[in-house]
Design a binder for these strands. Structure first.
Lengths: 224, 224
DNA sequence: CGAGTTCTTGATTATACTCAATCTTAGTGG
DNA sequence: CCACTAAGATTGAGTATAATCAAGAACTCG
Protein backbone atom coordinates (compact mmCIF):
# COMPACT_ATOMS: atom_id res chain seq x y z
CA UNK A 1 0.00 0.00 0.00
CA UNK A 2 1.81 3.02 -1.27
CA UNK A 3 -0.18 6.03 -0.35
CA UNK A 4 -0.33 8.54 -3.13
CA UNK A 5 -2.97 9.31 -5.67
CA UNK A 6 -6.25 7.50 -5.02
CA UNK A 7 -6.87 6.85 -8.72
CA UNK A 8 -3.79 4.67 -8.91
CA UNK A 9 -5.37 2.04 -6.76
CA UNK A 10 -8.18 1.02 -9.00
CA UNK A 11 -5.60 -0.61 -11.25
CA UNK A 12 -4.71 -2.95 -8.44
CA UNK A 13 -8.12 -4.50 -8.09
CA UNK A 14 -7.82 -7.17 -10.79
CA UNK A 15 -5.34 -8.90 -8.52
CA UNK A 16 -8.14 -9.91 -6.25
CA UNK A 17 -9.39 -12.36 -8.83
CA UNK A 18 -6.25 -14.44 -8.70
CA UNK A 19 -7.33 -16.26 -5.57
CA UNK A 20 -9.70 -18.34 -7.66
CA UNK A 21 -6.75 -20.13 -9.24
CA UNK A 22 -5.92 -23.80 -8.86
CA UNK A 23 -2.41 -24.09 -7.44
CA UNK A 24 -3.19 -22.55 -4.09
CA UNK A 25 -2.47 -23.72 -0.61
CA UNK A 26 -4.47 -23.51 2.59
CA UNK A 27 -4.92 -20.02 3.97
CA UNK A 28 -2.43 -18.97 6.65
CA UNK A 29 -3.04 -16.93 9.78
CA UNK A 30 -0.73 -14.39 11.35
CA UNK A 31 -1.40 -12.93 14.78
CA UNK A 32 -0.91 -9.24 15.50
CA UNK A 33 2.73 -8.47 16.32
CA UNK A 34 4.01 -11.71 14.82
CA UNK A 35 6.47 -11.69 11.95
CA UNK A 36 5.82 -13.26 8.58
CA UNK A 37 9.45 -12.96 7.47
CA UNK A 38 12.62 -10.98 8.04
CA UNK A 39 15.02 -9.16 5.76
CA UNK A 40 17.54 -11.62 4.40
CA UNK A 41 15.24 -14.65 4.68
CA UNK A 42 14.97 -16.99 1.74
CA UNK A 43 11.71 -16.43 -0.15
CA UNK A 44 9.62 -19.57 -0.53
CA UNK A 45 6.17 -18.04 -0.61
CA UNK A 46 4.39 -14.91 -1.66
CA UNK A 47 1.27 -13.93 0.24
CA UNK A 48 -1.90 -12.18 -0.70
CA UNK A 49 -3.50 -10.46 2.27
CA UNK A 50 -7.05 -11.74 2.76
CA UNK A 51 -7.84 -9.83 5.93
CA UNK A 52 -5.94 -7.76 8.48
CA UNK A 53 -3.05 -5.37 7.88
CA UNK A 54 0.66 -6.09 7.46
CA UNK A 55 3.60 -3.76 7.94
CA UNK A 56 6.73 -3.94 5.76
CA UNK A 57 9.75 -2.23 7.28
CA UNK A 58 13.43 -1.67 6.73
CA UNK A 59 16.05 -0.68 9.26
CA UNK A 60 19.24 1.35 9.01
CA UNK A 61 22.15 0.31 11.23
CA UNK A 62 21.69 3.36 13.46
CA UNK A 63 18.05 2.53 14.14
CA UNK A 64 16.39 4.80 11.63
CA UNK A 65 13.44 2.99 10.15
CA UNK A 66 11.43 3.24 6.97
CA UNK A 67 8.00 1.70 6.69
CA UNK A 68 8.04 0.52 3.08
CA UNK A 69 4.36 -0.30 2.83
CA UNK A 70 1.25 -1.40 4.63
CA UNK A 71 -0.28 -4.59 3.29
CA UNK A 72 -4.06 -4.37 3.06
CA UNK A 73 -6.50 -6.99 1.76
CA UNK A 74 -5.81 -7.59 -1.91
CA UNK A 75 -2.13 -6.65 -1.68
CA UNK A 76 0.63 -9.12 -2.45
CA UNK A 77 3.69 -9.12 -0.23
CA UNK A 78 6.99 -10.97 -0.31
CA UNK A 79 8.37 -10.36 -3.80
CA UNK A 80 11.87 -11.79 -3.85
CA UNK A 81 15.01 -10.10 -5.11
CA UNK A 82 17.84 -12.52 -5.76
CA UNK A 83 15.70 -15.04 -3.90
CA UNK A 84 15.69 -13.08 -0.65
CA UNK A 85 13.31 -10.89 1.32
CA UNK A 86 14.39 -7.27 1.50
CA UNK A 87 12.09 -6.08 4.26
CA UNK A 88 10.79 -7.31 7.58
CA UNK A 89 7.10 -8.04 7.60
CA UNK A 90 4.77 -8.31 10.59
CA UNK A 91 1.06 -8.02 11.30
CA UNK A 92 -0.48 -4.89 12.81
CA UNK A 93 -3.69 -6.78 13.52
CA UNK A 94 -4.58 -10.45 13.15
CA UNK A 95 -4.34 -11.28 9.47
CA UNK A 96 -5.22 -14.07 7.08
CA UNK A 97 -3.01 -14.77 4.11
CA UNK A 98 -3.25 -16.78 0.94
CA UNK A 99 0.21 -18.23 0.21
CA UNK A 100 1.54 -18.83 -3.31
CA UNK A 101 4.73 -20.67 -4.10
CA UNK A 102 7.55 -18.45 -5.23
CA UNK A 103 8.10 -20.88 -8.09
CA UNK A 104 4.70 -19.98 -9.52
CA UNK A 105 5.89 -16.39 -9.90
CA UNK A 106 9.31 -17.24 -11.21
CA UNK A 107 8.71 -20.32 -13.35
CA UNK A 108 5.01 -20.22 -14.07
CA UNK A 109 5.04 -23.77 -12.71
CA UNK A 110 1.81 -25.43 -13.74
CA UNK A 111 -0.39 -22.37 -13.39
CA UNK A 112 0.18 -19.78 -16.14
CA UNK A 113 -2.82 -17.75 -15.10
CA UNK A 114 -1.62 -17.33 -11.52
CA UNK A 115 1.89 -16.67 -12.79
CA UNK A 116 0.56 -13.87 -14.92
CA UNK A 117 -1.49 -12.40 -12.10
CA UNK A 118 1.49 -12.37 -9.74
CA UNK A 119 3.63 -10.74 -12.41
CA UNK A 120 1.00 -8.06 -12.94
CA UNK A 121 0.94 -7.45 -9.20
CA UNK A 122 4.71 -6.95 -9.22
CA UNK A 123 4.43 -4.48 -12.10
CA UNK A 124 1.67 -2.57 -10.29
CA UNK A 125 3.95 -2.47 -7.28
CA UNK A 126 6.65 -0.71 -9.29
CA UNK A 127 4.30 1.97 -10.48
CA UNK A 128 2.80 2.47 -7.03
CA UNK A 129 6.27 2.84 -5.55
CA UNK A 130 7.05 5.53 -8.11
CA UNK A 131 4.09 7.50 -6.79
CA UNK A 132 5.45 7.09 -3.32
CA UNK A 133 8.79 8.56 -4.45
CA UNK A 134 7.01 11.76 -5.38
CA UNK A 135 5.43 11.86 -1.95
CA UNK A 136 8.63 11.22 0.00
CA UNK A 137 10.77 13.50 -2.10
CA UNK A 138 8.58 16.42 -2.95
CA UNK A 139 5.61 16.79 -0.61
CA UNK A 140 5.23 18.83 2.58
CA UNK A 141 4.10 17.35 5.89
CA UNK A 142 0.48 18.41 5.38
CA UNK A 143 0.43 17.08 1.84
CA UNK A 144 1.86 13.77 2.97
CA UNK A 145 -0.61 13.28 5.80
CA UNK A 146 -3.53 14.39 3.63
CA UNK A 147 -2.45 11.99 0.87
CA UNK A 148 -2.19 9.19 3.38
CA UNK A 149 -5.67 9.77 4.74
CA UNK A 150 -7.15 10.17 1.26
CA UNK A 151 -5.89 6.82 0.08
CA UNK A 152 -6.85 5.00 3.26
CA UNK A 153 -10.27 6.60 3.07
CA UNK A 154 -10.72 5.44 -0.51
CA UNK A 155 -9.37 1.95 0.01
CA UNK A 156 -10.67 0.96 3.42
CA UNK A 157 -12.90 3.80 4.59
CA UNK A 158 -16.30 2.91 6.07
CA UNK A 159 -19.15 4.89 4.62
CA UNK A 160 -21.05 6.70 7.37
CA UNK A 161 -23.51 8.26 4.93
CA UNK A 162 -22.43 11.86 5.30
CA UNK A 163 -18.80 11.13 6.09
CA UNK A 164 -16.15 8.42 5.88
CA UNK A 165 -14.57 6.71 8.85
CA UNK A 166 -11.02 5.45 8.63
CA UNK A 167 -9.41 2.98 10.98
CA UNK A 168 -5.69 3.45 11.63
CA UNK A 169 -4.33 0.19 13.03
CA UNK A 170 -0.78 1.54 12.88
CA UNK A 171 0.88 3.82 15.44
CA UNK A 172 1.83 7.45 14.82
CA UNK A 173 5.43 6.27 14.65
CA UNK A 174 4.51 3.88 11.83
CA UNK A 175 2.83 6.68 9.88
CA UNK A 176 5.85 8.89 10.52
CA UNK A 177 8.28 6.26 9.27
CA UNK A 178 6.08 5.65 6.26
CA UNK A 179 5.90 9.34 5.30
CA UNK A 180 9.43 10.33 6.27
CA UNK A 181 8.36 12.51 9.21
CA UNK A 182 8.46 12.35 13.03
CA UNK A 183 5.67 11.26 15.35
CA UNK A 184 5.43 14.81 16.67
CA UNK A 185 4.83 16.17 13.19
CA UNK A 186 2.17 13.54 12.49
CA UNK A 187 0.45 14.46 15.74
CA UNK A 188 0.60 18.19 15.07
CA UNK A 189 -0.66 17.76 11.52
CA UNK A 190 -3.61 15.64 12.68
CA UNK A 191 -4.44 18.31 15.23
CA UNK A 192 -4.19 21.00 12.58
CA UNK A 193 -6.55 19.08 10.25
CA UNK A 194 -8.92 18.53 13.15
CA UNK A 195 -8.94 22.21 14.16
CA UNK A 196 -9.61 23.15 10.52
CA UNK A 197 -12.70 20.96 10.59
CA UNK A 198 -11.35 18.68 7.84
CA UNK A 199 -11.23 15.57 9.98
CA UNK A 200 -12.49 14.45 13.37
CA UNK A 201 -10.49 12.23 15.67
CA UNK A 202 -12.83 9.82 17.45
CA UNK A 203 -10.00 7.99 19.13
CA UNK A 204 -6.35 7.43 18.37
CA UNK A 205 -7.12 4.72 15.85
CA UNK A 206 -10.29 6.12 14.34
CA UNK A 207 -10.59 9.30 12.33
CA UNK A 208 -13.52 10.61 10.32
CA UNK A 209 -13.03 12.53 7.12
CA UNK A 210 -15.46 15.44 7.31
CA UNK A 211 -14.40 17.31 4.17
CA UNK A 212 -12.95 14.83 1.69
CA UNK A 213 -12.72 17.43 -1.09
CA UNK A 214 -10.64 19.76 1.06
CA UNK A 215 -8.44 16.88 2.14
CA UNK A 216 -7.86 15.91 -1.48
CA UNK A 217 -7.00 19.49 -2.38
CA UNK A 218 -4.50 19.61 0.47
CA UNK A 219 -2.97 16.32 -0.64
CA UNK A 220 -2.32 17.69 -4.12
CA UNK A 221 -0.65 20.75 -2.70
CA UNK A 222 -2.71 23.51 -4.22
CA UNK A 223 -1.05 26.44 -2.53
CA UNK A 224 -3.63 29.15 -3.21
CA UNK B 1 19.40 3.25 -11.07
CA UNK B 2 18.33 3.81 -7.54
CA UNK B 3 21.19 5.23 -5.62
CA UNK B 4 21.51 3.67 -2.22
CA UNK B 5 23.77 0.98 -0.94
CA UNK B 6 26.46 -0.05 -3.41
CA UNK B 7 26.26 -3.72 -2.46
CA UNK B 8 22.72 -3.88 -3.78
CA UNK B 9 23.91 -3.40 -7.31
CA UNK B 10 25.88 -6.55 -7.72
CA UNK B 11 22.60 -8.41 -7.78
CA UNK B 12 21.64 -6.57 -10.92
CA UNK B 13 24.54 -7.74 -13.01
CA UNK B 14 23.08 -11.07 -14.20
CA UNK B 15 20.63 -9.05 -16.23
CA UNK B 16 23.42 -8.14 -18.61
CA UNK B 17 23.48 -11.66 -19.93
CA UNK B 18 19.96 -11.52 -21.25
CA UNK B 19 20.97 -9.71 -24.41
CA UNK B 20 22.32 -12.96 -25.77
CA UNK B 21 18.80 -14.29 -26.09
CA UNK B 22 17.11 -15.15 -29.38
CA UNK B 23 13.94 -13.06 -29.64
CA UNK B 24 15.67 -9.70 -29.82
CA UNK B 25 15.23 -6.85 -32.24
CA UNK B 26 17.72 -4.47 -33.79
CA UNK B 27 19.33 -2.04 -31.37
CA UNK B 28 17.73 1.40 -31.16
CA UNK B 29 19.43 4.77 -30.81
CA UNK B 30 18.21 7.74 -28.83
CA UNK B 31 19.84 11.15 -29.14
CA UNK B 32 20.49 13.32 -26.08
CA UNK B 33 17.41 15.32 -25.14
CA UNK B 34 15.03 13.12 -27.11
CA UNK B 35 12.23 11.25 -25.44
CA UNK B 36 11.81 7.49 -25.48
CA UNK B 37 8.27 7.62 -24.11
CA UNK B 38 5.91 9.72 -22.04
CA UNK B 39 3.74 9.05 -19.03
CA UNK B 40 0.44 7.59 -20.20
CA UNK B 41 1.84 6.09 -23.40
CA UNK B 42 0.95 2.52 -24.26
CA UNK B 43 3.84 0.18 -23.51
CA UNK B 44 4.91 -1.92 -26.50
CA UNK B 45 8.58 -2.36 -25.72
CA UNK B 46 10.93 -2.60 -22.79
CA UNK B 47 14.48 -1.38 -23.30
CA UNK B 48 17.79 -2.41 -21.89
CA UNK B 49 20.28 0.41 -21.93
CA UNK B 50 23.39 -0.59 -23.89
CA UNK B 51 25.22 2.72 -23.71
CA UNK B 52 24.43 6.26 -22.63
CA UNK B 53 22.23 7.43 -19.76
CA UNK B 54 18.45 7.80 -19.55
CA UNK B 55 16.39 9.90 -17.18
CA UNK B 56 13.00 8.76 -15.86
CA UNK B 57 10.85 11.56 -14.47
CA UNK B 58 7.44 12.29 -13.10
CA UNK B 59 5.67 15.60 -12.82
CA UNK B 60 3.16 17.01 -10.36
CA UNK B 61 0.50 19.37 -11.72
CA UNK B 62 2.17 22.38 -10.07
CA UNK B 63 5.51 21.66 -11.73
CA UNK B 64 7.26 19.85 -8.93
CA UNK B 65 9.29 17.06 -10.41
CA UNK B 66 10.70 13.79 -9.19
CA UNK B 67 13.49 12.02 -11.03
CA UNK B 68 12.49 8.40 -10.52
CA UNK B 69 15.70 6.87 -11.78
CA UNK B 70 18.67 7.21 -14.08
CA UNK B 71 19.01 4.40 -16.60
CA UNK B 72 22.62 3.25 -16.97
CA UNK B 73 23.97 0.46 -19.16
CA UNK B 74 22.52 -2.83 -17.99
CA UNK B 75 19.34 -1.27 -16.62
CA UNK B 76 15.92 -2.15 -17.98
CA UNK B 77 13.40 0.67 -18.40
CA UNK B 78 9.77 0.79 -19.42
CA UNK B 79 8.02 -1.70 -17.15
CA UNK B 80 4.30 -1.32 -17.78
CA UNK B 81 1.58 -0.94 -15.20
CA UNK B 82 -1.86 -1.66 -16.56
CA UNK B 83 -0.20 -1.55 -19.99
CA UNK B 84 0.91 2.08 -19.64
CA UNK B 85 4.09 3.98 -18.95
CA UNK B 86 4.08 5.79 -15.64
CA UNK B 87 7.06 8.08 -16.18
CA UNK B 88 8.55 10.20 -18.91
CA UNK B 89 11.86 8.94 -20.22
CA UNK B 90 14.51 10.85 -22.16
CA UNK B 91 18.22 10.58 -22.84
CA UNK B 92 20.81 12.69 -20.98
CA UNK B 93 23.44 11.73 -23.54
CA UNK B 94 23.22 9.78 -26.78
CA UNK B 95 22.13 6.27 -25.91
CA UNK B 96 21.78 2.85 -27.49
CA UNK B 97 18.98 0.58 -26.44
CA UNK B 98 18.10 -3.05 -26.90
CA UNK B 99 14.31 -3.32 -27.25
CA UNK B 100 12.28 -6.30 -26.05
CA UNK B 101 8.63 -6.81 -26.80
CA UNK B 102 6.35 -6.24 -23.86
CA UNK B 103 4.67 -9.53 -24.70
CA UNK B 104 7.89 -11.37 -23.85
CA UNK B 105 7.65 -10.05 -20.31
CA UNK B 106 3.95 -10.59 -19.92
CA UNK B 107 3.30 -13.82 -21.82
CA UNK B 108 6.73 -15.42 -22.06
CA UNK B 109 5.96 -15.55 -25.78
CA UNK B 110 8.41 -17.92 -27.40
CA UNK B 111 11.36 -17.10 -25.19
CA UNK B 112 11.06 -18.40 -21.63
CA UNK B 113 14.64 -17.53 -20.78
CA UNK B 114 14.23 -13.88 -21.74
CA UNK B 115 10.86 -13.81 -20.01
CA UNK B 116 12.50 -15.00 -16.84
CA UNK B 117 15.34 -12.49 -17.11
CA UNK B 118 12.93 -9.58 -17.56
CA UNK B 119 10.89 -10.76 -14.62
CA UNK B 120 14.00 -10.93 -12.46
CA UNK B 121 14.88 -7.40 -13.55
CA UNK B 122 11.45 -6.23 -12.44
CA UNK B 123 11.88 -7.91 -9.07
CA UNK B 124 15.33 -6.35 -8.63
CA UNK B 125 13.74 -3.03 -9.42
CA UNK B 126 11.30 -3.42 -6.55
CA UNK B 127 14.04 -4.10 -4.06
CA UNK B 128 16.22 -1.27 -5.37
CA UNK B 129 13.29 1.12 -5.06
CA UNK B 130 12.83 0.08 -1.45
CA UNK B 131 16.39 1.19 -0.79
CA UNK B 132 15.61 4.48 -2.40
CA UNK B 133 12.66 4.94 -0.03
CA UNK B 134 15.04 4.85 2.88
CA UNK B 135 17.16 7.48 1.23
CA UNK B 136 14.29 9.83 0.38
CA UNK B 137 12.52 9.42 3.68
CA UNK B 138 15.24 9.17 6.25
CA UNK B 139 18.56 10.56 5.06
CA UNK B 140 20.04 14.05 5.43
CA UNK B 141 21.30 16.11 2.50
CA UNK B 142 24.92 15.08 3.03
CA UNK B 143 23.98 11.42 3.36
CA UNK B 144 21.92 11.59 0.19
CA UNK B 145 24.62 13.23 -1.89
CA UNK B 146 27.32 10.92 -0.49
CA UNK B 147 25.16 7.87 -1.25
CA UNK B 148 24.57 9.12 -4.76
CA UNK B 149 28.28 9.60 -5.44
CA UNK B 150 29.19 6.26 -3.85
CA UNK B 151 26.86 4.30 -6.09
CA UNK B 152 27.84 6.18 -9.24
CA UNK B 153 31.48 5.68 -8.35
CA UNK B 154 30.94 1.94 -7.91
CA UNK B 155 28.83 1.47 -11.00
CA UNK B 156 30.37 3.77 -13.56
CA UNK B 157 33.48 5.28 -11.95
CA UNK B 158 36.71 5.33 -13.97
CA UNK B 159 39.69 3.99 -12.08
CA UNK B 160 42.45 6.60 -12.00
CA UNK B 161 44.76 4.35 -10.02
CA UNK B 162 44.79 6.32 -6.78
CA UNK B 163 41.30 7.74 -7.13
CA UNK B 164 38.01 7.25 -8.97
CA UNK B 165 36.59 9.68 -11.49
CA UNK B 166 32.85 9.98 -11.89
CA UNK B 167 31.06 11.57 -14.79
CA UNK B 168 27.78 13.33 -13.99
CA UNK B 169 25.85 13.73 -17.24
CA UNK B 170 22.84 15.08 -15.36
CA UNK B 171 22.32 18.65 -14.15
CA UNK B 172 22.32 19.71 -10.50
CA UNK B 173 18.56 20.09 -10.84
CA UNK B 174 18.29 16.44 -11.91
CA UNK B 175 20.29 15.32 -8.91
CA UNK B 176 18.14 17.53 -6.67
CA UNK B 177 14.92 16.10 -8.06
CA UNK B 178 16.30 12.60 -7.68
CA UNK B 179 17.31 13.08 -4.04
CA UNK B 180 14.40 15.26 -2.95
CA UNK B 181 16.52 18.40 -2.45
CA UNK B 182 17.04 21.74 -4.22
CA UNK B 183 19.81 22.63 -6.67
CA UNK B 184 21.25 25.07 -4.14
CA UNK B 185 21.54 22.34 -1.54
CA UNK B 186 23.24 20.02 -4.02
CA UNK B 187 25.68 22.77 -4.90
CA UNK B 188 26.42 23.60 -1.28
CA UNK B 189 26.89 19.95 -0.38
CA UNK B 190 29.31 19.40 -3.26
CA UNK B 191 31.28 22.42 -2.13
CA UNK B 192 31.30 21.14 1.42
CA UNK B 193 32.61 17.73 0.30
CA UNK B 194 35.23 19.46 -1.85
CA UNK B 195 36.41 21.70 0.98
CA UNK B 196 36.66 18.66 3.25
CA UNK B 197 39.00 17.06 0.72
CA UNK B 198 36.62 14.14 0.14
CA UNK B 199 36.02 14.90 -3.52
CA UNK B 200 37.52 17.14 -6.19
CA UNK B 201 35.41 18.90 -8.79
CA UNK B 202 37.28 18.93 -12.11
CA UNK B 203 34.39 20.51 -13.93
CA UNK B 204 30.66 20.62 -13.47
CA UNK B 205 30.21 17.17 -14.95
CA UNK B 206 33.33 15.48 -13.61
CA UNK B 207 34.11 14.81 -9.99
CA UNK B 208 36.90 12.73 -8.48
CA UNK B 209 36.40 10.74 -5.31
CA UNK B 210 39.52 11.34 -3.24
CA UNK B 211 38.49 9.54 -0.06
CA UNK B 212 35.99 6.79 -0.91
CA UNK B 213 36.00 5.37 2.61
CA UNK B 214 35.04 8.72 4.13
CA UNK B 215 32.37 9.20 1.49
CA UNK B 216 30.91 5.79 2.28
CA UNK B 217 30.92 6.57 6.01
CA UNK B 218 29.09 9.82 5.33
CA UNK B 219 26.55 8.02 3.15
CA UNK B 220 25.69 5.64 5.98
CA UNK B 221 25.20 8.51 8.38
CA UNK B 222 27.62 7.60 11.10
CA UNK B 223 27.19 10.66 13.23
CA UNK B 224 30.22 10.39 15.47
C1' DC C 1 -6.24 0.15 39.08
C1' DG C 2 -1.63 1.27 38.01
C1' DA C 3 2.54 1.03 35.25
C1' DG C 4 4.20 1.73 30.92
C1' DT C 5 3.70 3.02 26.48
C1' DT C 6 1.99 6.10 23.11
C1' DC C 7 0.26 10.48 21.94
C1' DT C 8 -0.05 15.43 22.26
C1' DT C 9 1.59 19.96 23.03
C1' DG C 10 5.10 23.52 23.81
C1' DA C 11 9.63 25.80 23.26
C1' DT C 12 13.67 25.94 20.81
C1' DT C 13 16.80 24.75 17.19
C1' DA C 14 18.68 23.10 12.88
C1' DT C 15 18.37 21.83 8.36
C1' DA C 16 17.29 22.80 4.05
C1' DC C 17 14.41 26.16 1.34
C1' DT C 18 13.69 30.65 -0.76
C1' DC C 19 15.07 34.66 -2.87
C1' DA C 20 18.69 37.21 -4.87
C1' DA C 21 23.16 38.24 -6.78
C1' DT C 22 27.29 36.75 -8.93
C1' DC C 23 30.07 33.62 -11.41
C1' DT C 24 30.84 29.99 -14.83
C1' DT C 25 29.99 27.40 -18.79
C1' DA C 26 28.38 26.37 -23.32
C1' DG C 27 26.66 27.81 -27.43
C1' DT C 28 26.14 31.48 -31.29
C1' DG C 29 27.26 34.65 -34.57
C1' DG C 30 30.19 38.32 -36.07
C1' DC D 1 38.87 33.57 -32.47
C1' DC D 2 36.47 36.34 -29.49
C1' DA D 3 32.60 38.81 -27.70
C1' DC D 4 27.96 38.16 -26.43
C1' DT D 5 24.12 35.74 -24.60
C1' DA D 6 21.57 32.49 -22.10
C1' DA D 7 21.42 28.76 -19.14
C1' DG D 8 23.23 26.57 -15.32
C1' DA D 9 25.95 26.62 -11.05
C1' DT D 10 27.58 28.75 -6.94
C1' DT D 11 27.36 31.62 -2.97
C1' DG D 12 25.13 34.56 0.47
C1' DA D 13 21.44 36.23 3.57
C1' DG D 14 17.30 35.45 5.67
C1' DT D 15 13.39 32.36 6.56
C1' DA D 16 10.32 28.48 7.16
C1' DT D 17 9.43 23.91 7.95
C1' DA D 18 10.00 20.11 10.44
C1' DA D 19 13.25 18.10 13.96
C1' DT D 20 14.66 17.90 18.62
C1' DC D 21 14.15 18.09 23.42
C1' DA D 22 11.09 18.04 27.18
C1' DA D 23 6.87 17.77 29.83
C1' DG D 24 2.31 16.40 30.54
C1' DA D 25 -1.99 13.81 28.98
C1' DA D 26 -4.31 9.84 27.37
C1' DC D 27 -4.57 5.51 26.22
C1' DT D 28 -3.46 0.11 26.84
C1' DC D 29 -3.05 -3.89 29.08
C1' DG D 30 -1.95 -6.92 32.62
Amino acid sequence: MYVTNPAEYLAKMPVRTLASSGAKTAEARLKAGHYLYFEGDQVDWLYQVTSGVLRLTRLLEDGRRQVIAFGYPGDIVGFPSAGLHHTDCDALVDARLQPYRRSVLENGEGDPKLHHALLQAALCEISAMQDHFMMLGRKSAVEKVASFLCVLSDRVGEDLGEHTQVNLPMSRADIADFLGLTTETISRTFTQLRKSGIIAINNIHTIVVLRPDTLLTLSLGDRN
